[in-house]
Amino acid sequence: CEICHEVFKSKNVRVLKCGHKYHKGCFKQWLKGQSACPACQ
C-alpha cells in the first residue's frame, strides 16, 4: 500500500481504475482530504 507502506496481507484491497492498489481503510482515510489517487496526482 503506497499510503501506509505495509504489505497487503488480506483481500481488503481496493484497486483503482488507474491500476494502483491500496488497503480499503487507507484509501477511505485518504479520500477525506484528497480526491485523486495518491500515486497519480
Rank of each mutant, 00 (worst) to 15 (best):
C1T: 00
C1D: 05
C1S: 00
C1V: 02
C1L: 02
C1A: 00
E2Q: 10
E2V: 06
E2L: 07
E2H: 10
E2K: 09
E2F: 05
E2A: 07
E2I: 08
E2W: 07
E2P: 04
E2R: 06
I3Y: 04
I3K: 04
I3V: 03
I3A: 00
I3F: 15
I3S: 05
C4H: 01
C4N: 02
C4Q: 00
C4R: 00
H5V: 04
H5M: 09
H5N: 13
H5F: 08
H5K: 15
H5G: 08
E6M: 13
E6K: 15
E6N: 14
E6S: 15
E6P: 01
E6G: 13
V7R: 14
V7D: 15
V7E: 10
V7Y: 04
V7P: 07
V7F: 02
F8A: 06
F8G: 08
F8W: 03
F8N: 05
F8S: 04
K9R: 04
K9H: 03
K9L: 02
K9V: 01
K9A: 03
S10V: 03
S10L: 06
K11D: 08
K11P: 06
K11G: 08
K11T: 13
N12D: 09
N12W: 03
N12E: 10
N12S: 08
N12G: 06
N12T: 12
V13P: 08
V13I: 15
R14T: 13
R14Q: 04
R14K: 10
R14H: 12
R14N: 14
R14P: 03
R14V: 06
R14Y: 06
R14D: 15
V15G: 07
V15K: 04
V15T: 08
V15R: 09
V15E: 09
L16M: 10
L16P: 06
L16E: 14
L16V: 04
L16T: 10
L16I: 13
K17Y: 02
K17R: 08
K17I: 09
K17H: 12
K17T: 12
C18T: 00
C18V: 00
C18F: 00
C18Q: 00
C18A: 01
C18E: 02
C18N: 04
G19H: 06
G19A: 05
G19W: 02
G19T: 04
G19F: 01
G19I: 00
H20K: 01
H20D: 01
H20V: 00
H20G: 00
H20R: 01
H20C: 09
H20Y: 07
K21D: 04
K21N: 10
K21M: 12
K21L: 09
K21H: 06
K21S: 13
K21W: 07
K21F: 14
K21Q: 10
Y22S: 11
Y22V: 15
Y22Q: 05
Y22E: 04
H23K: 02
H23W: 00
H23D: 07
H23T: 02
H23A: 02
H23N: 01
H23G: 02
H23L: 03
K24Y: 07
K24N: 04
K24G: 14
K24A: 13
K24E: 15
K24S: 13
K24V: 12
G25C: 12
G25R: 14
G25M: 13
G25Y: 08
G25T: 07
C26T: 00
C26R: 00
C26Y: 02
C26I: 00
C26M: 01
C26H: 01
C26N: 00
F27M: 09
F27H: 13
F27C: 06
F27Q: 11
F27D: 10
F27K: 12
F27G: 13
F27W: 15
K28N: 15
K28H: 10
K28M: 10
K28G: 14
K28F: 09
K28C: 07
Q29R: 14
Q29K: 14
Q29H: 05
Q29L: 09
Q29V: 08
W30V: 13
W30S: 10
W30N: 08
W30F: 12
W30H: 15
W30T: 11
W30R: 09
L31N: 14
L31G: 12
L31W: 09
L31K: 12
L31H: 10
L31V: 13
K32Y: 05
K32W: 04
K32G: 10
K32D: 10
K32R: 07
K32E: 14
G33H: 14
G33K: 12
G33I: 06
G33S: 11
G33V: 08
G33D: 09
G33M: 07
Q34W: 06
Q34T: 11
Q34C: 13
Q34Y: 04
Q34E: 13
Q34I: 06
Q34R: 11
Q34S: 13
S35C: 10
S35T: 12
S35H: 09
S35W: 07
S35R: 09
A36Q: 08
A36N: 10
A36G: 15
A36T: 11
A36D: 14
C37V: 02
C37N: 01
C37G: 03
C37S: 03
C37F: 02
C37K: 02
C37Y: 00
P38A: 10
P38H: 09
P38Q: 07
P38K: 12
P38L: 08
P38C: 08
P38N: 04
P38E: 06
P38F: 06
P38S: 10
P38M: 11
A39M: 09
A39V: 09
A39C: 09
A39K: 06
C40S: 02
C40K: 07
C40Y: 01
C40M: 01
Q41P: 12
Q41C: 05
